[in-house]
Design a protein around this nucleic acid. Sequence first.
DNA 1: TACATATCATTTGCATGCTAATGATACCGA
DNA 2: TCGGTATCATTAGCATGCAAATGATATGTA
Lengths: 173, 173
Amino acid sequence: MIPIGFAIINFDIGLGPAEILEIFCPERHFILNDEPDLEYQLDDQVGYILRRVYQRHTGIFAKLMPQDLTPTRFAAMVKLLELGTLSQNELGRQTSMDIATIKGVVDRLKARNFVKSQRDPKDGRRQMISLTSEGRSVVENALPFAKNVTEKTIANLSPEERNQLVELLKKLC
Amino acid sequence: MIPIGFAIINFDIGLGPAEILEIFCPERHFILNDEPDLEYQLDDQVGYILRRVYQRHTGIFAKLMPQDLTPTRFAAMVKLLELGTLSQNELGRQTSMDIATIKGVVDRLKARNFVKSQRDPKDGRRQMISLTSEGRSVVENALPFAKNVTEKTIANLSPEERNQLVELLKKLC
DNA sequence: TACATATCATTTGCATGCTAATGATACCGA
DNA sequence: TCGGTATCATTAGCATGCAAATGATATGTA
């Protein structure tokens, strides 16, 4: 049961799929047989919308942030600024990146001399990651831009709506 | 000006960074000098939260969907089911994927024989993409699973909260 | 001490997602 | 018809993001 079938009817009687379903069977939402209503509007699915919103956000981020800072690079540097030296795994946990992803991010930050790493002398498994002085300066200077990115991302929302959104999203992770 | 400095104070007097800033200067939010307040909590930034929520969602998606369907593959197939044959570019626009991304998705769907493509005889530039009969069957069978993915993603929210969230997110893309 | 288990890190492979460069085809106005 | 412009598609390069396999190091216990 696919939307296009309804769209044709829609041309004739000026009703959308949902309304037509209501007319045919307001309780169970089926037509002509017992097939369950599988009407599925991609554009209303939270996952699809989340992808699109995050896409727009990363576009804003790329446009406004200095120093080629990406969301993940910046996140790692902010956490290092806040928490100091961290093992690579711990840095990944703090920034919601798995070990493969955080390794790539750290490698690229090292290539730019924004972070440095050294083995933990007390635990030979650990790579301890910390900001270089250049990295500290870069991330401190980037903070106001990052605030601006957040502002631009939610510019269409009122202050109450902004709080609502963040509270709702926090319940989903 | 980094949070850890406040955290130490916090131990002693039981106040968070925001409250301490209020005490020192409720108007301009600075302490001891004219440096603007750059307090920046990564975990409260909407972009960072969006990434984490979408991450969790894709995890649910991967766990529940059949046929190795990913969010983008499924999105493309749903749009083809709904709208019929589309040019590759148009399919990308309908699913919020740029031309490079949609090409990869289409290539992988073709490799699985879920979609087929042929040049538009009326416009030699266009690759017209459509579902194969196998692809149609796969996506129709996948729809209830996709509904379940959405349900699991927002399981922590009440019905009103779900509507709120979707409405707020739609304002951001 | 020796072994099992856990943790940390690396690597490979696959899948998005973007930009930029390139080439082919349509279309439109002079 | 010609030439400029627009659209469609391909390709290359870089950056996430995940799963799985591998290896090195710690740790706890028999």
